[in-house]
Simulated scan of single mutants.
Amino acid sequence: MHALRYAVGTDPGLRREANEDSVYFSERLFAVADGMGGHAFGEVASNIAVAVLADLDVDADDPHTELAAATREIAIRLTDLAEENFDMRGMGTTLTALLWEGERFAVCHIGDSRCYLVRDGELAQVTRDHTMVQALVDDGRMPPEQAAEHPSRSMLMRALQAGSDHDADLFHQDAHEGDRYLICSDGLSDVVPPEEIRRLLTSTPDGDDTVRALIDAANAAGGPDNITCLVIDVIPAANPSWLPAWLRR
């Protein structure tokens, strides 16, 4: 059995007056939601997402069933609000959530917030963006390098929205001792290259310092959007002070 250590931070960035990101964390459940809709409706949507997750039964026999039910509940609440207020029709949110099961995570993902994994010093993207440019990459019609710079790279094809019936991706992610996970909104991933994210995630074992460094990097790149980072370290339950070799460097 492994244990977790985590750190979290959120920042409005340099160009937004409000922060429409919401973050949820507990001993076992971790999530980032990036709201959209303008006029503060994005903040309402992401807040609804984390409020629903706060009521999740983390001890359920089938965590994916619980997570799927949560995403449906979020969509229902958004639809109900949009029916009451015409201006809220475009309101929605991304959601990337990890539910800890002791040796692995149950992952729930929709939108373009991301989960990254650093294992043995190497960075991998755990989730797949539900964007137009990612679909073009998957179809072989656009190289990843071009997609990373495309002006429409944040155009979503799937999200939790009023009137939407899009399903989230649900899968398991096996965890190893020494793994470091990052859940972030696109305010980080849109402006900080993967190699720089990898460097910052491996530069210090201190999660709080890592979160601050990631947010600082996004703001140094212009801070065009809200920035939320949640860093999770997988450690042995019997020895929380243990660190993998790549973190001791």
Score class of each variant (00 low, 15 high):
residue 171 F to T: 09
residue 134 Q to L: 14
residue 155 M to A: 00
residue 149 E to T: 15
residue 176 H to I: 14
residue 189 S to R: 05
residue 132 M to Q: 14
residue 144 P to A: 12
residue 172 H to P: 12
residue 175 A to Y: 10
residue 144 P to E: 14
residue 166 H to M: 11
residue 192 V to R: 05
residue 156 L to I: 02
residue 176 H to E: 15
residue 143 P to L: 06
residue 165 D to A: 10
residue 132 M to G: 08
residue 161 Q to P: 05
residue 175 A to F: 06
residue 149 E to W: 02
residue 150 H to W: 01
residue 138 D to W: 09
residue 183 I to A: 03
residue 194 P to N: 14
residue 191 V to Y: 02
residue 175 A to D: 12
residue 148 A to Q: 02
residue 165 D to W: 05
residue 182 L to H: 04
residue 137 V to C: 01
residue 179 D to Y: 01
residue 172 H to C: 15
residue 135 A to L: 02
residue 169 D to S: 06
residue 135 A to I: 00
residue 187 G to E: 03
residue 177 E to F: 01
residue 194 P to H: 13
residue 184 C to I: 11
residue 140 G to L: 04
residue 157 M to Q: 10
residue 155 M to D: 05
residue 190 D to C: 00
residue 175 A to E: 10
residue 148 A to D: 01
residue 156 L to C: 09
residue 161 Q to C: 12
residue 173 Q to W: 15
residue 151 P to A: 00
residue 189 S to L: 01
residue 184 C to W: 07
residue 180 R to E: 15
residue 172 H to D: 15
residue 145 E to A: 15
residue 161 Q to K: 12
residue 154 S to E: 02
residue 137 V to K: 00
residue 179 D to N: 09
residue 162 A to S: 13
residue 141 R to I: 11
residue 142 M to L: 15
residue 165 D to H: 07
residue 155 M to I: 02
residue 149 E to C: 11
residue 143 P to M: 03
residue 184 C to Y: 00
residue 175 A to M: 07
residue 145 E to H: 13
residue 136 L to M: 09
residue 153 R to A: 11
